[in-house]
């Protein structure tokens, strides 16, 4: 499923637009960046509460499909600028990581 479709089906708010045509093939949840860095795979949907520039850097390096900020966690202004510049899609949801994971497992 493409990022665009995912955002529509889950009713996510689009905070920054990267490549919305990118394919989502898996999902990873976590907030400790070194952990995510070594475990998240290319084209994963990454669920986190970390809306800072470092999270954007991790998204770039892991080539994940998009970030979903869970429980309406906020995106820093610096991070938003960086994400736009580096083409990282950041979405936001009021749901928590568990609720989103359950829904995502039915979609992908």
């Amino acid at each position: 499923m493409k990022v665009k479709e995912l955002a529509e089906k889950l009713g996510l708010t689009v905070l920054t637009e990267g490549d919305l045509e990118k394919e989502c093939t898996g999902c990873y949840s976590g907030d400790l960046l070194s952990w995510v860095m070594s475990r998240a795979k290319e084209n994963d949907i990454w669920l986190t509460v970390m809306g800072n520039v470092n999270a954007v850097a991790v998204a770039v390096l892991t080539d994940c499909a998009c970030i979903i900020l869970t429980e309406n966690s906020v995106l820093d202004k610096d991070a938003a600028i960086r994400a736009v510049r580096q083409g990282v899609t950041i979405l936001q949801s009021e749901k928590n990581a568990y609720e989103l994971s359950v829904l995502i497992s039915e979609l992908i």
Binding site: L33, S34, W35, A55
Partner: peptide, 12 residues
């Protein structure tokens, strides 16, 4: 609080 400090950097 920024997401660092898992102690996984050097092992990675």
């Amino acid at each position: 609080s920024l997401g660092f400090g898992a102690g996984m950097g050097l092992p990675n």
